[in-house]
Every structure is written in structure tokens, then in C-alpha cells.
Amino acid sequence: MEQLGFDFGVEPQPLIKVTPARLSLYDDCPRRYRMTYLDRPTPTRAGPWAHNTVGAVVHNAMRELFGLPVAERTPERASVLVSRHWRSAGFADAVQVARYAETARRWVADYVEAGGADADVVGLEQWVSATVGSDPAAPSLIVEGRADRIDRRGTELVVVDYKTGRRTPEDADARRSRALALYAVAAGRTLRAPCSRVELHHLPTGTVAVAEHTADTLGEHVREAEETATASRAAADRLTRGGDPDRLFPARPAPRCAWCEFRPSCPEGRQAAPAARPWDLLTPTT
């Protein structure tokens, strides 16, 4: 006997898998997004940047530090971990390398000295994932990625993101950060605990920028992520069907073109700003 069923002639759309980094990149510059994720072979990239080296070293040292018992998270151990992970890519010379190695050691040691190492950590570079959408009954996205750190405070979780850049973050930056908001949603789902607080920890200054999200503010970030993800997938689909890559993924020239890794492959970017030197974005030392 033939089974009865319903067919409304509507093909369900597959969920779009995204990370906060992919979404941010598409919003900033669709061409850079295409060159990063879609073009094969990947276009020529610029060499390493010293500020990225410092950021990676500090993140690696902090990850290892917070994997230790609280009693072992000392300023001395933090400094040693920076030395263990240190790299010299992108710096001007050996003098600059030595200066920033010492600066990075001081940043993490001061962080610990100020009491930042007492956290109850439940995730280090934790992979988190959640199925979300502006309509809870019909989710459209799988949001996933690695959060720098997830703390437990009482019954709730807090997403922590380390920063080492030149600019000191403010609470408004934490509130506007789509990445932190999506990590909060995904952390809550993955670890099965409430998560509404997100923090930016700026190691050069010791500043902690904080945002306390509500269901409405998290929902707004999800809605914006959905719009970006839908637009990027539509453009990628048209590209697959033979669309013009430069029309579908246009460049968005801006001052940041000075340090874009795809500058060698982007005429508009080269015209937008003079090339930065690999060490120009380092946070000034004191």
C-alpha cells in the first residue's frame, strides 16, 4: 500500500556552516573573502606580519598557562611560556625582536600579577557549535569556531577573547563584536549552560571590555550573521555557475588595504593605500 505524504514542492535549503571569521571577512571585503576561501589555487599572499606573530605567541602562551592548575599560573611561568612559543617572523631586525619578546613577557606576567589567572576555566580554544537562525523554528546556520577561553562564574559561562593590538577596546567594542556574541550562543549550546557575558582582555593595558547580552541582542547578532551568510552563499553559487568573480566579490578599498595579505593580487588595494611595513602595526612599547 502506498504511503501518503505531503509534498509542497519546496526544496529545503541546506544549513550554511559559518565561522565568525568568515562572516567578518565577507563584510569587510568580499574580494578578500573570495581569495581566502574560494579561489584555487590561492592567490599570492604578502609575507608575515610582526603584530600577528606577537598575537599568536601571546595566545599560545595564555592557552598553555590556563591549562595549568591555578597555583602554577605564576607571573614567572607566564613569562617562560612566552619565551617557549616565541617566533621572530615579520620584525624589522634582531633589536626589535628582542624588545617585543620582552614586552610580550611583561604583558602576560602583569596579567597574572593583576589576578587574571584565577579564573575557573572550562574551555581553552574550545570548539563550540550551534544551529541558529532568526526564526528559531527554521534555523539556517551552523555557527562554529574556537573561543580563546570560556570561564565559569557561578552558574553561567563567560566568553573571553584576548587582544594585543594598538587600540584599547571599550565596552562598546565588546557589545558590537559579532564574533563574541556568536561564541556566546554556541558556548551556551555546546556546554549546556547560560552564556550572556563576553569580555575583551587587552593585555598591553590590562583593560577588560565587557558586554552583558540579552536574548534580544544575541538574536540581533544572529540575524545579521544570517544576512551575511546568505549573501556570501548566493554569491558563491553564482560564481560556481560562471559568474564574474570581480562583480560578485568586489573589492572594498580602505586604509586596511595597506596590510592586506592579498595586496600583491589586488590592484584596487594597492591603489587604496601605500604598503605598510610588516612591523608597522605593532603595539608601541613603553
Rank of each mutant, 00 (worst) to 15 (best):
E156W: 06
V143A: 06
R84V: 11
D171F: 02
I150G: 02
S196N: 14
R197H: 09
R178M: 13
L124P: 09
A89I: 08
H201T: 05
A209L: 11
L81R: 02
V80G: 08
H85S: 06
E144H: 11
Y162M: 12
P136T: 09
T164Q: 08
A172F: 09
R87L: 14
S88P: 05
D110L: 03
R152E: 07
L203P: 04
T103N: 09
D171H: 06
E102F: 03
H202S: 04
V97W: 11
F91T: 06
R176I: 03
A138S: 13
A104D: 05
H201E: 10
P136A: 12
V97I: 15
V122Q: 02
A89M: 13
V198Q: 05
Y162A: 12
R166V: 15
V143M: 02
V143R: 06
A172Q: 13
G115M: 05
V158E: 14
R146Q: 12
A181W: 02
W86K: 05
A137H: 12
L200W: 09
T190M: 01
R176A: 13
S134H: 06
R87N: 10
R178C: 05
R77N: 03
D151C: 02
A101S: 14
V121Y: 00
H85F: 14
L141N: 11
S177M: 04
D151P: 00
V122A: 03
R197C: 03
V208H: 11
Y183V: 04
C195V: 08
G90V: 13
E76T: 09
H201R: 10
H85N: 06
V80D: 15
D118I: 08
Y111N: 08
K163C: 07
R87Q: 13
Q126N: 08
V132D: 14
H201Q: 10
E125H: 09
G154F: 09
R146F: 13
A130W: 04
Q96P: 12
G145E: 04
H85P: 07
V160Q: 01
T155I: 11
G154M: 11
Y111K: 07
V143G: 04
D120Y: 08
A184K: 03
P169E: 13
A172G: 15
V208G: 12
A138Q: 12
S134W: 01
L124S: 09
E156A: 15
E144Y: 09
G115T: 01
